[in-house]
Amino acid sequence: MPVISITNLTKKFNGFTAVDGISLEINEGEVFGLLGPNGAGKTTTISMLATILPPTSGTATLCGHDCATATDEVRKCIGIVFQDQSLDDELTGRENMDMHGRLYGMRDELRKNRMNELLKLVELEQFADKQIKTYSGGMKRRLEIARGLMHHPKILFLDEPTIGLDPQTRRKLWDYIKAVNRDERITIILTTHYMDEADELCDRIAIVDKGKIIALDTPEGHKKSLGGDVASVECSEPEKFAALLGKAKLAKKANVAEGGKVIATVENGGEAVPKIMALAEKNGIAVKSVLVKQPNLEDVFLHYTGREIRDEEAGEKDRMKGAMRMHGRR
């Protein structure tokens, strides 16, 4: 049963197409990932589904309600954790959650029980009565997830849930996200530009680039879709060698990645190495190293777009906000 159906969803900003005719269905209880580089249109897609932005054209229904016309019904059945922090720093964790419950019209008793249940789930009971400004980045995220779940939504959106967190905190947060999906039996839509995150958490992943879905499959399916292994060759004249690999039918696809390495999709990694060496020798190309490995999602993205997803730094605006928070101005 699809809990979200999206048909030709499009968003244009002053002639720039941020989301370009996306269509897909998301099933109940699924963890669905939108994977792509910054600026691919992931946040814009989520914003339309969460009724923050009206679509330019196309439709999306969530729990049977249209996101453009039945905004209040949609809002009641979704929870959302934004990419940027959206807590009130001056209030305590419990107060932030309580306020959320009140805004959704939850009764006192229900609010109290739900709060305790969720604080336990994200293991923040001890800190619940401390002000948010004393929380670490990971704690804030956990509280935001708990807050988003307060009103028993059917769908939870997580927009870049682990951006800006250190590796250990990220790993821990993944455990909480898995627990939420399992214990609350909730559908989760998450956007990320981290390959490992999508691989670890998602049942299905849509790879998004320039506002379009370029591939949609399970993590395993994506990797198998390359039909072989990935060879990374460090050599002289990479452009020429990439073309040669393709022409010799040694590689299904060969691109020059950033840093000048040739990345080629080959049928059988072990057998390909001597053939690659022979081809290079025949054409007078000096090979420095060859590395063969099983493909990961990064290779899948590269395969489809010819580019790598780069882990870009936080934008100017985010950094400014961080600095202002430190000064405690409000």
Binding site: A50, T51, I52, T71, D72, R75, K76, I78, I80, F82, D84, Q85, S86, L87, D88, D89, H100, L103, Y104, R147, K321, M324, R325, R330
Partner: peptide, 15 residues
């Protein structure tokens, strides 16, 4: 400030 610090978004997605 509520807009700058994101809290306004939280209020605006509630019904």
């Amino acid at each position: 400030w509520d807009r700058q610090f994101g809290f306004m978004k939280e209020i605006l997605v509630t019904p």
